[in-house]
């Protein structure tokens, strides 16, 4: 058993599961947005804003944002542990990554639910 405190769920299995479930959600979200854009060629602000005013769309979007955050964290954490061997550098990079993800997530929520 290799112990590690910086990964997502402290378990490779949960990381692995999170990675796969979040991937499915992101795929569905991407497909939906692409289809929506294709089906609405002359898209204007009102229609676009109307879509995001609906509660189900807000929940779906939030789910996608959270999935993206989790997916990015698991993936980038893995990359840092593969390639960044000096501890200081690795912890620094991981801190920067998690801060960025946090900021983007909160910002995303604000855009979605704010105003």
């Amino acid at each position: 058993m290799v112990t590690n405190i910086t990964n997502f769920g402290r378990s490779g299995l949960s990381d692995w599961l999170v990675q796969r479930v979040s991937a499915v959600i992101l795929a569905l979200y991407t497909v939906f947005i692409v289809l929506y854009l294709l089906l609405n060629p002359g898209l204007d602000y009102a229609t676009w804003s109307g879509l995001f005013a609906q509660t189900w769309m807000r929940i779906f979007s939030l789910l996608a944002f959270v999935s993206l955050a989790a997916h990015a964290w698991v993936g980038l954490w893995t990359v840092t542990t593969d390639y960044l061997k000096p501890t200081g550098l690795r912890v620094g990079a991981q801190t920067a990554i998690i801060l960025a993800i946090f900021v983007f997530l909160v910002w995303g929520i604000q855009i979605l639910w704010g105003a």
Binding site: M1, T3, N4, G12, L13, D15, W16, T81
Partner: peptide, 11 residues
């Protein structure tokens, strides 16, 4: 139980 961590198998 020995294999569940993020490295042993999941790398």
């Amino acid at each position: 139980a020995e294999l569940e961590d993020p490295f042993s198998v999941f790398r």
